[in-house]
């Protein structure tokens, strides 16, 4: 694939921008060009947050994502807002722990991941974002698990490195949920 374009969206505090940064680092570590754009403004915990990431073989012209190859929707409003931005045949990953509605698009590949429930099972609901990332990595081979782990070592401050094994488990849980076809 020449370029891979992702939108990550959810509530502020769900680690949406962080997932985007991990994607960008993973892309860079794989020798690709990357661009990460956050929403910015008067945002806060509980408000909406989103970011877009482009991972590209070639130089990135417009850094804006107009048609996304994948959408990670962490909550209902995100699904509603960004579903139309998916390209035909794109990947729609919904956090079914939070998203109760059904997707309207029939021309995309939809996957439901009960990310918060899976994270709770690991003992820390805050890694729900990494569960979603694991599901994406399972579906999109441009991202290797190794590069994602390397990216997490980069993004997590050293004082949080004891959480790396937990995050690795979360990645795996997300990937497993796709393999097992949970909630598809």
């Amino acid at each position: 694939m020449e370029a891979f374009r992702v939108i990550v969206s959810g509530f502020g505090g769900q680690g949406v921008l962080l997932v985007g940064q991990i994607l960008a680092y993973a892309g860079m570590f794989s020798g690709k060009h990357v661009a990460w754009i956050p929403s910015y403004g008067a945002e806060m915990r509980g408000g909406t947050a989103n970011c877009s990431v482009i991972i590209s073989e070639g130089e990135i012209s417009s850094p804006l994502v107009e048609k996304a190859d994948a959408l990670l929707a962490f909550n209902g409003p995100s699904l509603e807002k960004f579903e139309p931005s998916l390209r035909e045949g794109g990947l729609l990953l919904m956090n079914t722990s939070m998203v109760t509605g059904e997707p309207r698009r029939r021309d995309v590949r939809s996957f439901g991941i009960p990310a918060n429930d899976l994270a709770d099972r690991l003992g820390n609901s805050r890694v729900a974002n990494i569960v979603m990332l694991g599901a994406l990595a399972e579906l999109e081979p441009v991202l290797s698990f190794e590069s994602i782990m390397e990216a997490m070592r980069m993004v997590l401050p050293e004082r949080h490195h004891h959480l790396l094994p937990l995050n690795q488990e979360a990645l795996k849980a997300g990937a497993e949920s796709i393999k097992e076809g949970v909630g598809v």
Partner: peptide
């Protein structure tokens, strides 16, 4: 501009 300031690239 705001986009270039906020954006991350390599």
């Amino acid at each position: 501009d705001g986009l270039l300031g906020q954006m991350m690239e390599e």
